[in-house]
Amino acid sequence: MIVTTEMNGRNRRQALVVSSLVAWAAGLVVWLAPALWLLLGLIPFSYWWVRRRYLRRVTVMQQPFPDEWERVLRTHVAFFVALNDAEKTRFRHLVQIFLDEVQITGIRTEVDETIRVLVAASAAIPIFGFHDWEYHRLREVLIYPDAFDDAYQSHGGSDEHILGMVGLHHLSGVMILSKPALLAGFAHQAGSQNVGVHEFAHLVEQEANE
């Protein structure tokens, strides 16, 4: 989620309310039991706790967008190319925040900047029309060297036909994508489905129905 000036101000007010309530409660406890004066340290901590994600995202959004990431978007992501300048800036911010907060791990395959940016673009496209959407549960995306089976195995077997999947049970919070399928989805090949965008759209639908 991009942090706008309005959202940042609202979060700041929420943090002030929470820290004020903590200050009142801590002050009362210390008045009754002066030996517990260390509880006063909860006041600034509570303010920081409410603000922490917004502060980090603002910092991330202020970082220069890497030239290599820009090249990947302009070369491979037609959705990005079609946006106007203001929308392109917003898309870049979504990519920056996603790559800061979600780990992308290669399983027996290399993950370079092209793969990382295409995963982030896949995540940004389905939520671009929603200004406050969060992938609440997603913490990691695994990149497999090829298709895989229902047991998340990829060894070249004939039953390995899955190109992307949102993990279940012990893999909750994890998405798995086939590297060749991810690249093909952004290669503008006739008849090829964009597996990355499809899986993130599925995740949006899944979280919306919970």
Rank of each mutant, 00 (worst) to 15 (best):
R51A: 01
V22S: 03
W24F: 15
G27H: 07
L42P: 01
V50H: 03
Y47E: 01
V29Q: 02
V22C: 04
W24T: 13
P44F: 07
L40A: 11
V22F: 02
L36M: 13
V18R: 02
V29I: 15
R57S: 02
L28E: 15
W48Q: 14
P34Y: 05
A15V: 09
R57C: 01
V60D: 01
Q63W: 03
W37M: 05
V17N: 10
M61Y: 01
L32I: 05
W37T: 07
R13C: 05
Q14H: 14
A33D: 14
V60T: 08
L39Q: 00
P64G: 05
W31C: 06
M61K: 01
S20P: 06
L42Q: 02
I43D: 00
L38I: 08
T59M: 10
L40T: 01
L16P: 05
L36H: 02
A26G: 02
S19Y: 03
L28A: 15
L38V: 10
W37S: 15
A23T: 01
A15I: 08
L38N: 06
N11K: 15
L40M: 14
Y47M: 04
A35F: 09
G41W: 07
F45T: 12
W48I: 11
L39F: 04
R12T: 11
V58T: 12
A15T: 09
L42C: 13
L16Q: 12
V29T: 14
S19P: 04
A15Q: 06
L40Y: 09
L28Q: 13
V18T: 09
S20E: 06
P44S: 10
W24M: 13
P44W: 01
P34T: 06
W31Q: 10
L55I: 06
W37R: 15
P34Q: 07
W37Y: 12
V17P: 02
V17R: 09
Q63A: 09
W24R: 10
V17G: 02
R57H: 07
A33K: 12
W37Q: 11
V17K: 03
Y54F: 10
G9T: 09
W24Y: 14
V30I: 15
S19C: 13
W31I: 03
R52S: 07
Q63M: 11
L32G: 15
L38F: 10
R53Y: 10
P34C: 04
L32M: 14
L40V: 12
R10T: 07
V22D: 01
R52V: 09
Q62S: 13
L21K: 08
L21S: 07
R53E: 14
L42V: 07
M61T: 03
R52E: 08
L38T: 06
A35L: 12
R10S: 11
L36C: 09
V60P: 02
N11Y: 08
L16Y: 14
R12C: 03
R12A: 10
L39H: 01
L55Y: 03
W31A: 11
S19T: 06
F45M: 13
V22I: 11
N11C: 09
R56A: 06
I43T: 00
S20C: 11
Q14L: 12
W48L: 11
G27F: 04
R51T: 00
G9S: 15
A23C: 06
G41N: 08
S20Q: 09
R53F: 12
